[in-house]
Write a protein that binds this DNA or RNA. Structure first.
Lengths: 389, 389
DNA sequence: GCTAGTAATGAAACTCTTCTTCGTAAGTAA
DNA sequence: TTACTTACGAAGAAGAGTTTCATTACTAGC
């Protein structure tokens, strides 16, 4: 109720400062007049606000662009290098991490293989190594880090504990947030990997700026992520999107249709089997096409449930199998058209394997944006520089 | 992006005025000091703000309460009688309407029977009659009306056109919003009835203040409504909640289990059949219990899909059959517990037949609240009195 | 190389909103 | 009737934003 409290004159200044920051974050370097126009302030006030932000370290000046008529205007930019964020993707076979600035621009990226059956501490150590590697790759230190956002397979609860994880046996029951907070002296965020991939699609993927979206994670394990009203939907217990567990959707067994297909050569590793079937289907192999059909039959049930329930603008197909989206999209569309009231736009992901890492970064960026957009009444701006610089 | 723009000094006054209004709307009559404390303003400023709101007609003074120590403080209240809202429920057999003040307090209520097969214009005329009846019952005129909010069965689109309606044949394809806007010289809102019932449950029903809720409309026709992040979820094309159309959920046929039960006496009207079965089940009749079991089997599929997907805090069972919620809740809970990751709280509706009408009123109240909470930059406060009074 | 035109800058005067402070008013309790 | 408590109202001070106007820095044209 009390999110828009009004108040003091200084509150107005704060609002205007945030407005200026949002403007600068949204667009590239801007002149004072441009900022003034966007924020609705007069130029003198804008100047004062920007000066203050410069003093705080949020904003920096860039050289003016010559070649224009009249006196060149000074230009300002948001200092995305005021702090850094690391996104981490904890999968069964790999730990990925990427370091980005406050604009979400990736500056260093790394992959660290892990055995699915590795003991708990090994995996946690791999996370720490991966994060430190991105730091040294980009020449930063732990004190430059504002946030580590971690995406992981498995079902979470609100507190960042993993209640269940089939892909990583050691993971079940782990207080991941707690362990990572001991490890990193900065803010730690935990989210589900499918949900983060969904977020990445609406922030920098194929569904940019879409407000209502359903993300289908199609891979050896299936999952879903929802963007509702432009925000990632976590659910009351941070367990939203687990429709794969609905028996009638048959999402757990669905990939078997592709794995067990006759076109898969004997001895193919389990990771590659489905890809073989999908490739054969693309080449027109009838057996493979029939397997894909059975797979899409199952995929369509859960998807139709989500579409009917939420009426999203866009459905995005992501995850490992989405490399073969061309084979999957048409039959899926056909099945959805048969049941749906309003057919959403159906698209394939464009982000590839980094989608979870990118989503984790976008999640952290979103937290920052939130502070810029709707600061709690008592809360100050985040500090651009740790004390003592 | 530009919803919190900051700006002018007058903007600050506006913010503070809105803050004061929200405070007064939330709590009953308040003294100046109380408002000052809630809004965070000093008393002199609060006084100025409240004076302005009194002049505008938004706020009125009430007699002070004697018997306290010291000088009695003046008390102010929000003028909920500045305007009026009508909520309408268009069902197959009835048109209901209720008139409420800006607090959503119902002042007059009426029911108007209609044949399901009645021609289009008869039904529209019934809506107009019902609205006018609530006006004359409460001694108001059409000019006192700010909003008519209509809930109807059927699938809508964004523009308020009915794309499909199985319960009211004449309704399909109708531009309901357009027709009603010709009829009423005030704001007209159209929504789906299940969604409005869901809204009512979170505003004044059993799920008050719940942020994430799934509402099951269980009756001869089944439906669903979602509250996500405290807001009614409409979906991109205003068609959210239509999970009943998913074949695998079997929600269309599910009520047949109850209608066709052997315990229903020959010649029972179709409206009453299910009620008989449910009553018999409550008395322990084995045949009826078996029918209820089959019914809940079907009900549970779609419900589990919604719960797994959204992870709501609460699931509310509403609609005609919810009168027998005691018979339905336990078996439904059992089935959900078998699949769900995190079991939501399962509750029965307490609002009865008026839930849609109340939801329509709450929808209109919510629009008003929105203007008080997040006014568009250019937009002025709504006018408490139509010009010329 | 000089002059005219253009657009951004910087400083001053003014307005609006809020805050703090203090004396006054209107009740209750003894 | 007196003392105490609480609310009210007016005056002065501070902060933030606006408008206005002279100044500055650069481009274009002769």
């Amino acid at each position: 109720m009390a999110n828009l409290r009004g108040g003091d004159l200084s509150r107005l200044r704060q609002l205007n400062a945030l407005s200026a920051i949002r403007t600068l974050r949204g667009a590239g370097p801007l002149t004072l007049s441009a900022i003034a126009e966007w924020t609705g302030l007069s130029r003198p006030s804008t100047k004062e606000v920007v000066d203050e932000l410069m003093a705080l370290g949020w904003v920096a000046e860039v050289p003016p662009t010559p070649g224009t008529m009249g006196r060149p205007a000074r230009r300002y930019r948001f200092r995305a290098d005021s702090g850094y964020l690391v996104g981490v993707d904890v999968g069964a076979h790999n730990v990925r991490a990427a370091l980005a600035d406050l604009d979400g621009e990736v500056m260093a990226e790394i992959r660290q293989p892990v055995e699915p059956t590795a003991p708990l501490d090994d995996r946690l150590a791999a996370i720490e190594r991966a994060v430190r590697a991105t730091l040294s790759l980009s020449g930063k230190t732990m004190t430059d880090l504002w946030t580590v956002a971690v995406g992981t397979t498995g079902v979470l609860n609100r507190e960042g504990r993993i209640t269940y994880c089939s892909a990583i046996p050691a993971w079940t029951g782990l207080d991941l947030a707690g362990r990572l907070r001991e490890m990193f002296p900065c803010e730690v965020l935990i989210e589900n990997d499918s949900r983060l991939a969904a977020l990445a699609e609406t922030r920098r993927g194929t569904a940019r700026n879409v407000q209502d979206m359903v993300f289908l994670h199609v891979a050896r394990r299936m999952g879903a992520g929802l963007i509702i009203n432009g925000r990632l939907h976590r659910g009351f217990g941070a367990a939203a999107g687990e429709i794969a567990l609905l028996p009638q959707a048959r999402w757990i067994e669905a990939p078997e249709h592709l794995n067990d297909c006759a076109v898969v050569p004997e001895g193919t590793s389990p990771e590659d089997a489905a890809g073989r079937t999908l490739a054969a289907a693309r080449d027109g192999d009838q057996v493979a096409l029939a397997a894909v059909d059975r797979y899409v039959d199952d995929l369509a049930i859960g998807t139709a449930a989500m579409v009917l329930l939420l009426d999203p603008e866009v459905v995005v197909l992501g995850g490992g199998f989405s490399r073969s989206a061309d084979v999957l999209l048409a039959p899926l569309r056909r099945r959805l058209e048969a049941v749906c009231v309003r057919m959403p736009d159906l698209r394939a992901s464009t982000l590839g394997d980094e989608c979870v890492v990118l989503g984790a970064i976008d999640y952290a960026v979103g937290r920052l944006d939130q502070q810029f957009s709707a600061p709690e009444s008592g809360q100050a701006l985040p500090q651009p520089f740790p004390a003592g610089r």
